[in-house]
Design a binder for these strands. Structure first.
Lengths: 228, 228
DNA sequence: ACAACAATGTACGAAATGGTACGTTCAGTC
DNA sequence: GACTGAACGTACCATTTCGTACATTGTTGT
């Protein structure tokens, strides 16, 4: 909530005052994230966001001029948070096999633990990625992911533990698809096939199987699988 | 509540009349499908659906009492259409390997060709599957998919071309995930990674790779891949 | 033919909703 | 302590949007 006390300049001078713009903005953004991810851009109501904020509706339009602008900021903040977490993964000093399996498990768990982010991306896709396209910020954030994966894959090919000829971007696509679908379609899938997909034991199984799928895809054809 | 209609018997006797309830309903449903899949339940506007229909708004409430009820009928119709197409697949007389790869390619292409359906399912997941849960119809439609896949898988295990111990439901999950994600996240993925995912050549590649992924997952550990 | 009911058009109402006008308080500056 | 601009509260407006009341036309059974 108020976790964002201003980093450098103003925090020292603005101590102990009643007006607290940074915290108000952060609060609005947090509430907006919940509301937009829950109900979508058109489903979310500014009045409801205002009510759940300790600020007033007036403040929403004061800091974020539009409903759409607020949504865009929400989306940007969500991506930023994800990439920050991803950056903490240090894959370079791990063996390729280990690094890849770790990346897969990280992605799977991360998505599972952040349904808000997944839902925002779903919603953004419903809007044809129109808002994401407006954001220079998000574009720049995502280059690193592919770079890291390319590095791991190339090392793996050199060491002979990955097969050649795969596109790292498609590998990322595969990992994303499985981890994303696990969250995005949980409701319909569970209901249709009467399967408690969200149950911890099933989530653990799925995590193992997803890791297995990816590893089997990149392993050379003559390699037998070792069970973890 | 109005979805009843003896399609064949009445259409012959009612030819050339001015009132045409069945066609009006079908028209409304078609327009509603486009609108809901494009803008979501809360984003779609009844007035806009009415304008694009040859009928009037009054008729929408006459045949489908609510916005929500209309949405539910839309969802049901979409699922029905899918399952009808799926039923045309005759996998029983094919060898397991051939049958599975055919099922994967069918699912992938089908989803790619029916973005409206995919988007409706996305939207329904945004709503936590609340409406799908109300529909007895959809629940009953989907049993067959798993049955067919179970049959293929069991035959494959018996013949030794599939490995043992896999859950057909998870296999279906895998196929769905890859085929679904290909459509659902096309916009964000394309924009972020600057990759024309929708381009026919990339779609063909992805279809091959997805098929490859599934086959590699079910193949016994000691089987080498043959390139198609 | 005519009652009875199904199908349709028109106009309108009430609530919700995005957004703003206007006034007030706070905090740093001189 | 007065001044200024940023930060905030309240009340309100204009439109949109779902839904309905009422009137009218078509269709069918007897």
């Amino acid at each position: 909530m108020t976790a964002k006390s201003n980093a450098s300049s103003s925090s020292s001078t603005r101590r102990g005052r009643k007006n607290d713009p940074e915290s108000v903005q952060a609060d609005i953004l947090a509430v907006a994230t919940r509301e937009f991810s829950e109900k979508g851009l058109s489903g979310a109501r500014i009045d409801e966001i205002a009510e759940k904020t300790r600020a007033s509706k007036r403040m929403i339009y004061y800091y974020f001029k539009d409903k759409e602008t607020l949504y865009l900021h929400t989306l940007e903040a969500a991506y930023q948070k994800v990439r920050l977490q991803e950056a903490e993964l240090q894959l370079n000093h791990l063996a390729p096999l280990e690094a890849l399996s770790r990346l897969v498990r990280f992605t799977f768990c991360h998505h599972a633990k952040n349904p808000d982010f997944i839902r925002l991306v779903m919603i953004e896709n419903i809007h044809h990625g129109r808002y994401l396209a407006q954001s220079k910020l998000i574009q720049s954030l995502n280059a690193g992911v592919i770079d890291a994966l390319t590095n791991v894959y190339n090392r793996g090919v050199e060491e002979g533990c990955f097969r050649e000829g795969l596109d790292p971007r498609e590998l990322h696509w595969l990992i994303s698809a499985l981890s994303f679908f696990n969250v995005s379609n949980q409701h319909t899938f569970s209901r249709i096939f009467d399967w408690k997909q969200a149950a911890p034991e099933n989530q653990r199984k799925l995590e193992d199987h997803v890791t297995d799928m990816v590893m089997r895809y990149v392993l050379p054809d003559d390699t037998a699988m070792a069970n973890p």
